[in-house]
């Protein structure tokens, strides 16, 4: 009898979770489906998930009518530069915080982590002024610079490095291995999975970055993907629904592929990010 009750409870909770799964997945399925429909079909049979007359016209249109290649290159450049830069700076800082004691180390670490809680509005006007002063308005490098300031990498990498037994570092120091050698031969190989998943998250977040680019970028040719997509929500492109879905697909594509390939790494690293 209690076994039976447990079984029922399980089924009910499965159903609840399935509702969440549907809410999570439906928009993606919806986008895939409608991006392959013609304009009229998308309006007349919006509920039909498998297009009756699949077409790649929408994709052709967006690549010809918009500077989409340029926009993808822009987005890619921004995300790559931001990712590499943040990885290197966070990695070095995390190494110092994990394996050494120096004056003010704890306070400094605390301050870095506390910046995660600073809302972007606190820095947006002065940063806008900085970017405008150095002439990077309407330039993807103006989008890149303020994004470099992010302590999550320091936080996650420090947490990872602290799991490395100190004795490993000590034994190599006794062998006369220099700091660079310890970094390259010992710490890096042991933190590689975390570096990969944090790097991917940096890349995806930067790929999706929206707020800062809207302030900096003015011309379509300099846009990143989320900006061009935004145009299709406002009245301008608002009626051409399948086209908007096709651009959504292009925007989602790279993050989805990265996630599919590296989900194990990503889930492991990010599951642990809230556990101190």
């Amino acid at each position: 009898m209690p076994e039976n009750k447990m079984e029922w409870r399980r089924i009910i909770w499965h159903l609840v979770l399935i509702v969440f799964v549907l809410v999570a997945l439906f928009p993606i399925v919806f986008a895939v489906s409608n991006s392959f429909k013609g304009l009229s079909e998308s309006y007349n049979s919006i509920l039909q998930l498998i297009p009756a007359h699949p077409t790649i016209e929408n994709y052709k249109t967006i690549f010809t009518s918009l500077p989409l290649y340029q926009i993808i290159i822009n987005t890619f450049t921004v995300a790559t530069v931001v990712t590499l830069f943040k990885l290197v700076t966070s990695y070095l800082a995390a190494y110092a915080f994990s394996f050494s004691h120096f004056f003010g180390d704890k306070l400094l670490y605390f301050l870095f982590i506390a910046t995660i809680f600073v809302p972007f509005t606190v820095t947006m006007i002065p940063n806008y002024l900085i970017i405008s002063r150095i002439g990077l308005l309407n330039n993807i490098y103006g989008v890149i610079l303020p994004q470099l300031c992010d302590a999550t990498g320091i936080f996650l990498l420090t947490q990872t490095m602290r799991t490395i037994p100190k004795s490993l570092i000590e034994v190599s120091r006794l062998d006369g291995v220099k700091t660079v050698g310890i970094l390259r031969d010992i710490v890096f190989p042991l933190t590689r999975p975390a570096v990969i998943s944090i790097g991917i998250m940096f890349f995806i977040n930067s790929w999706n970055e929206y707020v800062w680019p809207t302030l900096i970028l003015k011309d379509r040719a300099n846009f990143t993907l989320p900006l061009i997509l935004q145009m299709f929500i406002s009245s301008e492109g608002g009626t051409n629904f399948p086209i908007a879905m096709a651009i959504s697909m292009v925007t989602m594509f790279i993050p989805l592929v990265l996630y599919l390939f590296f989900q194990k790494y990503i889930l492991n690293t990010f599951s642990q990010s809230g556990i101190k």
């Binding site: 993606i28 999706n208 929206y210 997509l229 929500i233 925007t251 989602m252 993050p255 989805l256």
Partner: peptide
């Protein structure tokens, strides 16, 4: 969904 742009 957390890897997809919120604009999307």
């Amino acid at each position: 969904p957390s890897i997809i742009s919120l604009v999307v």
